[in-house]
Amino acid sequence: MKRQLALLGFMGRGGALSKVHELVRETPVSRVMTVSPFTLPPEATMKQLKDLLQKHRISGVPVVEDNELSGVVSLEDLIHALENRRLDAPVREFMTSEGLITAHVREPVMEALRRFENTGIGRMPVLDARNKLVGIVTRGDITIALLRALQDLYNEAEAMADRPQHFFGALESENTSLQLRYHVAKDDFAHGGDASAKIKRALLRIGASPQLARRVSIAAYEAEINLIIHTDEGGLILADIQPDEIIIVAQDSGPGIADVDLARQPGYSTATAEIREMGFGAGMGLTNIERCADRINLWSAIGVGARLQMMFDVSPREVGDD
């Protein structure tokens, strides 16, 4: 459900509606009509009409004489004939021929819809420029065509949302990436996790799978909390989002990690009792990061600072479905 909502967002505000509008305005009747419809000559009997309607489950046919449209005969006319027990009469007697309402093959569906609305009729013969019958169109044809077009639109948006590559597809450069930067202040526990949450939202927005967004944001969160707890002056979180790789960097300017190998061991922490009481400093931060990221680089020097680089592969698996 959540995913569908995201997709709608992806289609843009009111995107679907304006697309429908565009379709109704620009699609010609030729795209939605039934071509080469069944026809009857004027001398055919109402019984023949009944058989034709029954056999093909249709509700009306054009009547054609010498390749010219001379009328339309429908289920309603058939009922009249049945009421009068005139099934043997020619369709000529029951068909509508005067003031016949037709559609033009090149006119927009919107015009045809308007004529359906204004007249209340159920079908219109479709004529070409030389007034020759080329098809028949019903309200149902238009509805079905619009629903199909909407379905295509939805599939298109879904395909786009499935691949961050598509987000970058429109941008041309030798190496395109989206960079996000966040300052993280020392001891600012109240805002701890804000940067990670923003990174997560950005990833979901451009079409990353929830799983990918989750593992990136968990790693980013741990790095963010480390900046809050362990640095002299906080630090910087950088997210570099590329079509096939996401790189998160957490860097600070001190005090530096005394023993990087020791820091990477599960359960090792230098956090104070006060911080541990808040549930931080379990010594699991780097362990979690290593579990979530595909590769990491951790560099540090005492008195200089630390730089943690976390790499996440964007595999097709991770831009697929939930």
């Binding site: 701890g192 929830p210 989750r214 944001s217 969160y221 909390i225």
Partner: peptide, 14 residues
């Protein structure tokens, strides 16, 4: 735990 960071954790994890 009751400090505000629990909200960030919960939100990130869904």
């Amino acid at each position: 735990q009751t400090h505000s960071n629990i909200v960030a954790v919960a939100s990130l994890l869904g």
